[in-house]
Each structure stands twice: as structure tokens, then as C-alpha cells.
Design a protein around this nucleic acid. Structure first.
Lengths: 249, 249
DNA sequence: ATATAAACCAAATCATAATTGGTCGCTCAC
DNA sequence: GTGAGCGACCAATTATGATTTGGTTTATAT
């Protein structure tokens, strides 16, 4: 148990400056002075609030008010568990797949797919080449022939990626790949690994057909709608599975 | 201290199958059979070598030889500390911002934004908290007060990111951040640092207002449409600039 | 009413232990 | 001798638990 009882330090109330008409402003300036003279570590991190408040002889509440002001001014940024730092918040833009996967979950992945993939399909309907469409048809055929769920999923993944490629937008493709990597990395309760093959009536077959058909017809709205319908089906299936099998972890 | 001394387990040398003319080949087929019948977890990870060897009744050395064969065939991949997995090694899908930016260009970035951000705004209209909306309004006000283009862009960026945060979907937020990082990397050369402030009639002001207003009204379609309108304006402005100033990169 | 102190919370970090594929050295059987 | 089995060790990775830290709430006092 840390920090049991504060040893009896004589209060320094008398050392506090005389009452100010705007006391919080005074603390702000006091804090500014401290930040100016104190040499902070390389990363601009300043001591935790609990230390700083006692060092400045103010309550943590008041210190936090002052910090709020400086943060509002953009002079520093704070984050729970990390600390308080001078300067502007570093855009945490390293798209670390594993980090994303750790913070995410299957429901989020499905919602992200529902945001991205219909629009990707729309773009693909606009710019897909005949070769890309041929590859989509190949994926459709192979996924129907798949003898195991593992094989089926392989062709399913390839179909969706082919659609993303068909946008001819390398950035969109990169974002799609990132999303896909997170999807695979997210540890959802081990799904179907059954060695049985998907039933010929599996809902995805017809839905995939509809997507590719719309793309081939250059029907942008139709492609987006078909993709949305498909992902909604997948989502429903996912939720059913999750409900019927409440095992967690 | 773990695993002090292995308890004295009687050797099972006599239980080993009779000598095979090509022992290692036999183990490979045995391993193949095991992989075919055993249902592996979603990620394709198979049991650690120490378990698998005893489960198959072969020595770890022999098992590793068999695994070497399968790895050479590309049927599985291994990594120290992680384990052994079926399928092909996941291409290092770390979303390398600089690599993406190198392959991309401003036009692609704009199209990617037009794909993602309207749908993000739609989702935000559904799930934004009052606090998030308050922050959006703050960004609106501050961007109007901005005294330089740099400040304006700061608040503009923060507004768009706040909208992405309001989806309450960390994965979408991560994808948005990736897109944003690429955007900044791509437009790195040509950031206008003009000290003049944006005109009060700047098109983005009213467009931003419309987006936030739709989000506040929970008007999902309206938010998506407003965001699309805004990005179309930005795209038009971008193309004008690019035309009038044909400098590339 | 306001401020303070204390307690609690969740996110992040740190420290430590346990796994896991890769490698080396020894022993034994043939 | 040659090769296989066995055990130990290594480094990379993961898992786990305690600690730190900003954010929030509550009770108390002035």
C-alpha cells in the first residue's frame, strides 16, 4: 500500500502570497514561472500532479485548474497513465496493427467494415478493370468449390481485397489492408474451423454474386448497397454465434 | 524457480513404431495427417513443439525436421516466442506511413477522404456524446478566431479528428489517423504558411457548421452529405491550386 | 458556497515470470 | 563414427500483476 499517511509537515499557509483578487490566475502565473525556470527532461514531461501540487504549495484541485488553462491554450497536453507534457500532443499516428487490435473488438471491426467496404465497392464499380472483374469471378467460383471453411475464407478474403484493388487507389488499398490485418488479429472466440465445407446455400454466395454483378454493370449505388447487405448478413451471423456461444475468452 | 527437475518418467523407447525406411518422411506425413484432422484455432496456431512432439510420440528433433519441410513448402511459418502457424507468413502489415505516402498522391488522398469521412460523419451523428459535440463547437469557434493559416489548419484537423473520435470506434479512429498522417506526408511540401488569416467568408466555415449541426441533430444522412459537400469544396480548391501552381512534390 | 483532502477509477507503464522457437552439448545405440 | 534423443540454455515474445498517473467523486471543513 503506497503513500500511507503523509508525515506531519507544518503547513505553509503563511508562505502563500496574500489573497489575490483572482487567485486561480495567480496559480497560473506561478505555474508558468515554474515551467520557465525548471529544466524539464528531454520529453517535456513535468512531474505528476500530486508532486507538483505539494511542490508549489497549492492543492491538487487548484493546480489542475491552472493546468486546464494551459492545456486549453495548447501549451501542454495530458494523458492518463502517461503524464503531463509540454508542447502539442503527438498525433499517435503509428498505425501499429497489434496495438489497434488490442484496443479493438469484433463489433468495432464489423462497424468499420460497414463504413469502409460499401464505399470501396462503390469506387470499384467506377474504376474496376475487366481483369479485376475477371479475378473477382474467379474468387466467386473458387469459394463455391472450397472444401473446407479455411479454404473458403481464403477466397472470401481475396475477393474483398480484389475489390479494394479495383479502386486503383493505393491509399484506400492500404487502409483496407490495415483493417483486414486488424480483423484477423482481433482475438475473437475462435470461429468456425469445422472441416466441413460451406453449404451451397450459404448466404454469402448469392451476396458476393450481387456485389460483383453490380460492379460489372458499373452500378455504383448498387455495388455499395450489395456490399452493405452482405456485411450486414455477416454481422448478424457473427452476433448469433456470439450469443449462442457465450464462452468468453 | 520453474521446472526444477523432471520427475523420473520411464522411457518409452519401446513404444516407438518400428523402424521405417524413410523415418523423416513418415513423420512428415504423420504431421500432415494431424494438421488435417485436428481443428486448430482461428489464427492457425498449432501447439508448441514440446507438446506436439510428445503428442505425436516423436522426438522434438524429428518433429522440427518435419516442420522444416512444411515450412520450406510454405505451408506454415514460425517465429520465436510467438509459435508456429499455418498458412503464409503475414506480410509485415505495419501500415508504413511513409511507404504509403510514397505510392500515393494528393488526388488519391482526397478520394480516400471522400470515401471515409462522410461515412465517419454518419457514424458520428449516431454515437457522438454531448461532450464530443461541445468539442466540435469549440473547434468551430477557434478556427474562426484563428489568426494564421497554421492555427486554422490546427483547429480544422482537430475538428475532423474529433468527429472521428465521436464514432467511439477505436479502429475507425486508427484508420482515420493513418489517412491523416499520409495526407500530411503527401502535402508536406506545399503547406501555405501565409501569415494572413483565413477570410471570414472562407467556404469551410459554413460547411463545418453544417456538418456539426447535422451531427448534433442526429441527422446521419445529413452529416454524411454535409461532409461530402465540404470535402468536394476542398478538392476543388486543391485542384485549382495545383493547376495554377504546377509544381509537383 | 468553495476549497481541500482523501478515496476511487481506468488507462498506461513497469517489472517479473512464463512460453516458445532456435541452438548447443552430451550420451547412447548401432 | 554417425546420427538420434535428451536436456539445458538463449533470445524474442507474451502473460500477469503491481504501480503510476490523470480524471472524477465524495465527505468534510472553513
Amino acid at each position: 500500500m503506497p503513500h500511507l499517511v503523509e508525515p506531519n509537515i507544518p503547513h505553509r499557509a503563511m508562505l502563500t502570497p496574500p489573497k489575490d483578487s483572482h487567485p486561480e490566475k495567480g496559480i497560473v502565473t506561478q505555474l508558468r514561472a515554474y515551467l520557465a525556470q525548471s529544466d524539464l527532461p528531454e520529453d517535456g514531461r513535468l512531474p505528476p500532479e500530486r508532486e507538483l501540487s505539494s511542490a508549489l504549495g497549492v492543492s491538487r484541485t487548484e493546480l489542475r485548474k491552472a493546468l486546464d488553462v494551459l492545456e486549453e491554450e495548447g501549451q501542454l497536453w495530458r494523458h492518463v497513465g502517461k503524464g503531463t507534457f509540454l508542447g502539442s500532443r503527438p498525433l499517435d499516428t503509428f498505425a501499429d496493427i497489434s496495438a489497434l487490435a488490442r484496443r479493438s473488438n469484433p463489433a468495432e471491426v464489423m462497424r468499420a467494415r460497414l463504413v469502409m467496404e460499401p464505399e470501396i465497392a462503390r469506387a470499384a464499380a467506377f474504376s474496376a478493370t475487366p481483369a479485376a472483374i475477371a479475378e473477382m469471378r474467379l474468387c466467386l467460383a473458387r469459394s463455391r468449390q472450397a472444401e473446407t471453411w479455411r479454404h473458403y475464407e481464403g477466397w472470401d478474403t481475396r475477393l474483398h481485397r480484389t475489390i479494394a484493388e479495383a479502386t486503383q487507389n493505393s491509399l484506400l488499398l492500404g487502409l483496407f489492408d490495415t483493417l483486414n490485418a486488424v480483423r484477423r488479429a482481433v482475438t475473437w472466440g475462435r470461429l468456425r474451423t469445422a472441416p466441413v465445407r460451406p453449404a451451397p446455400t450459404h448466404h454469402s454466395f448469392a451476396e458476393h454474386d450481387a456485389i460483383v454483378e453490380a460492379i460489372e454493370l458499373r452500378d455504383m449505388a448498387g455495388a455499395a448497397a450489395a456490399m452493405r447487405t452482405h456485411l450486414k448478413s455477416v454481422e448478424r451471423k457473427l452476433l448469433e454465434q456470439q450469443d449462442s456461444r457465450p464462452e468468453d475468452r
